[in-house]
Design a binder for these strands. Structure first.
Length: 114
DNA sequence: GTTATGACTATGG
DNA sequence: GCCATAGCCATAA
């Protein structure tokens, strides 16, 4: 158990999914949302961002990008810098190459109970 | 209980 | 490839 239980199930699942993303790779909000939903049965693409904004300081939020491969947000320059520093394959200047950088989640095989 | 907001996605033009 | 609209889920007021 290493479950802090300080956060809600949804928050735990989202943070866990983002934390599983290896360096040099990225994932999309929809992908993380789908994984989190497969584990807790809750959550949506919007909730991922909401959780990250609340507890994004505990997880590599910069490894999460929009479905278009574009850095989603308010701190795009910061995220791009971090991604580039990790060696993430990028396309253009403000876009990540999802073809190569997109991390492959295994829906339903993450943590159904354990 | 309803309305408004949010680091989104999918589809259509 | 880009813009506009619709849909979705959870939280806060």
């Amino acid at each position: 158990m290493t479950e802090p239980s300080d956060l809600d199930d949804l928050t735990e699942c989202v943070l866990d999914c983002v934390a599983e993303i290896p360096p040099g790779r990225v994932s999309t909000y929809g992908r993380v949302a789908a994984e989190a939903r497969a584990r807790c049965g809750r959550g949506g693409p919007r909730n991922v961002g909401q959780v990250l904004s609340r507890h994004g300081d505990e997880v590599p939020w910069w490894r999460v990008v929009s479905a278009s491969g574009a850095t989603a947000l308010h701190k795009d320059s910061r995220q791009l810098t971090l991604l580039a520093a990790e060696g993430t394959p990028m396309r253009g200047e403000a876009r990540v190459d999802l073809r190569v950088a997109l991390h492959d989640f295994v829906i339903g095989l993450g943590e159904p109970d354990a």
